[in-house]
């Protein structure tokens, strides 16, 4: 594995740990979109179906896959649990978490049926998960843009998550040169994903950083 791939995976891991530790330590779910988190559960469950084939790639690969599936489910459980412990915050979340996910689900499902490596259940599911992942952050970004304020938690989380797929792009270029292979679907979706995140950081920079600089006494 090349350094971009390792760093990419580590930042992906870090993003989830940042999210979980913050929810646990601050005991708040403010600013988090449950829709995005449910979409990630769907992403990991549909992508890692090969776990059931037991023809595993490597120990590292399997452990990471199991971690991503279980941690994404755990985040949704934590958010659901807050329904009783943080009733007000939970209600606020539902009121601001209003992105229409059915459109992304439909769009990515169509994309998966049209663009895939092989017309089999596992490959369509894999393709669906890759396309879905590229846009799964949209409900979270939509929620953030509606509330107009961003907690440092959500920004750190989104930053680490955005970094992960961005680092995968030099990884793919590296692999193309050293191994002569490139996954065009992963590459195309990875570029879309990176663009979605860079748009967020551009807006974040313009709105939050510049504004706070202007507001200085």
């Amino acid at each position: 594995m090349n350094p971009f791939r390792i760093l990419g995976d580590l930042s992906h891991l870090a993003s989830i740990l940042v999210l979980i530790f913050n929810i646990k330590s601050t005991n708040t779910i403010e600013g988090i979109s449950i829709k995005t988190q449910v979409l990630y559960v769907l992403v990991f469950l549909t992508r890692y179906l090969d776990l059931f084939s037991f023809r595993l790639v490597s120990f590292y690969n399997t452990i990471m896959k199991l971690f991503f599936i279980s941690s994404s489910i755990y985040v949704v459980v934590l958010l659901q649990r807050s329904k009783t412990t943080q009733a007000v915050a939970y209600k606020t979340m539902l009121l601001t978490d209003t992105f229409k996910v059915q459109y992304i689900l439909l769009g990515t499902l169509i994309a998966a049926f049209v663009i895939n490596h092989k017309f089999t259940f596992v490959e369509i599911a894999w393709s669906f998960s890759v396309w879905l992942e590229s846009v799964a952050i949209l409900p979270q970004l939509f929620m953030l843009s509606k509330s107009g304020k961003s907690k440092s938690l959500t920004v750190h989380y989104i930053f680490a998550l955005g970094l992960y797929r961005t680092l995968y792009i030099p990884n793919w270029i590296w692999r193309y040169h050293t191994e002569g292979v490139i996954d065009k679907i992963a590459l195309a979706a990875g570029i879309i994903q990176t663009l979605v995140y860079s748009d967020f950081f551009y807006l974040y920079y313009k709105k939050v950083i510049k504004r706070s600089a202007l507001n200085l006494p």
Binding site: H12, N61, M64
Partner: peptide, 10 residues
């Protein structure tokens, strides 16, 4: 028949 595709990334 092409062999099964292996997705070795995450």
């Amino acid at each position: 028949e092409p062999s099964e595709i292996v997705h070795d990334e995450l």
